[in-house]
Design a binder for these strands. Structure first.
Lengths: 109, 109
DNA sequence: TACCGCTACAACGTAACACTAGGTACCGGT
DNA sequence: ACCGGTACCTAGTGTTACGTTGTAGCGGTA
């Protein structure tokens, strides 16, 4: 992946995953494949798992172990109230940044 | 500053500064105050200077020392061809990310 | 003269995060 | 018995923004 994309993902990837979980519960492998389908072809699996553990430890998500037909049991994550609040804050921060950047791109100054 | 904003700035701040320099030449202190005016109230001075040194070493900007009426001489930065190309790449990367996020926000999934 | 505040730049160590590159384990089909 | 797909996890590395501190020139003021 381009170094630009890597750095730009810092902070936003967390928001992306939380936003996904706001729509529906999901497990790590599922999120990874979904991201790949969306065009994030170069996001490493390990990155997602590390991120999920982080947000779990921060208490932003609830976890449930669900046995799978194939392979080891799935850890299904779902956004809880605290996570929703954190996600709202994320959208506010991102909107601010997004607005500034759009302005810069249009005005050229 | 919120930790979210801090992380989200990684990668984007560089693009922001390059975008500013695409519009006009500027020196560190000027950029810092401009950013503060734009609402980036918590960006540290040291952060900007470190960033400017980085992009200078990568050859994205040209530098000219200009004596100042007040204080030490200014290092005036201006975007060169390579920097412009890098900036274009930045916009492409950012557009991709921005599109995905807008989609997530609207669909809620 | 002595001091303060503003301008302008730089250096040092720290925390957070995504990446690379592995590893473990379970299952079905050949 | 083996391989590929599913599903999860860990250790170490590099980049980046932050906080803090330091240097230095200049103008105003007491």
């Amino acid at each position: 992946m381009s170094k630009q994309a890597t750095e730009m993902l810092k902070g936003t990837l967390e928001g992306i995953v939380l936003a996904i979980l706001a729509g529906r519960s999901a497990y790590g492998y599922e999120i990874t494949t979904w991201l790949r389908d969306q065009g994030f072809t170069d996001i490493a699996e390990g990155t997602i798992y590390a991120l999920l553990i982080r947000i779990e430890q921060r208490g932003l998500v609830d976890v449930e172990k669900v046995p799978s037909e194939k392979g080891p049991p799935r850890k299904v994550y779902s956004l809880n109230a605290q996570g929703q609040e954190y996600l709202n804050e994320f959208w506010r921060t991102w909107s601010f940044l997004s607005d500034r950047l759009e302005q810069l791109r249009d005005e050229g100054a």
